[in-house]
Simulated scan of single mutants.
Amino acid sequence: MSTTDHPQTDGQTERVNQVLEDMLRAYVSKKQTNWEEYLSILEFAYNSTKHSATGYNPFMLMHGFQPHSPTAVGFKQEKVEAVKNFLEDLNQMIEHAKRSIRQSQNRARHYADPHRRDVQFSAGEKVYLRVPVDSKTLKSGVCAKLSPRYCGPFTISRRLGEVTYELELPHSSKVFPVFNVS
């Protein structure tokens, strides 16, 4: 059993719950009383979205084909008025969600970009590593408050991506050797 204050599930389930909460937030009214109406649509949207880890969407992996989206069905030639209204409402909600996501991304970019800097290293250079607050293996000394904030210098063994590097750490560190520039 998992609650808000005491999450008792794995991290993947917690992350899925966060994604579904964000998706619900984009759809519900200001009163937040109609969220149950959108669960089936959100389930469809989540299960038909390609995941970065697998490269496939869950529906494709379970059933072997991609389902037809309600938005792919033309509602102009639809003769049943209730279906036509549903599809029009669905398209409006999707456009609203897209605008909300774009606004959120732009807002996050606005606050994050001033703090970013373009830093590049090459193999063989030495860098300092910021010690996380809860690190047991990289801290030195008994008192956590008096431990240094940075340790090293460590040699860069290779560049893995635009912002990720692999460091040559001591075998006693028990830390995964790949780090982000930030």
Rank of each mutant, 00 (worst) to 15 (best):
T4W: 15
H6L: 10
T9Y: 10
D10M: 10
G11P: 03
T13R: 11
N17H: 13
N17K: 10
A26C: 14
S29V: 03
T33V: 05
W35V: 08
W35K: 07
E37K: 12
S40C: 14
S40N: 12
S40V: 12
L42N: 13
A45T: 15
Y46V: 10
N47Q: 02
N47D: 07
T49W: 13
K50L: 12
H51I: 03
S52F: 05
P58I: 06
F59W: 12
F59P: 02
H68T: 13
V73A: 14
E81N: 09
A82L: 14
K84P: 06
E88W: 02
I101Q: 11
I101R: 11
R102C: 07
S104G: 14
Q105N: 15
H115Y: 10
R116Q: 09
Q120M: 12
F121T: 06
F121C: 04
V127T: 01
V127I: 01
L129V: 01
V131K: 01
D134P: 01
T137A: 11
T137E: 11
L138Q: 02
S140G: 04
V142E: 05
C143F: 10
A144Q: 06
S147G: 07
P148F: 00
C151I: 03
P153Y: 04
E162R: 13
V163S: 09
V163P: 09
V163E: 06
S172D: 05
S172W: 00
K174E: 09
V175N: 00
V175G: 00
F176H: 12
V178M: 02
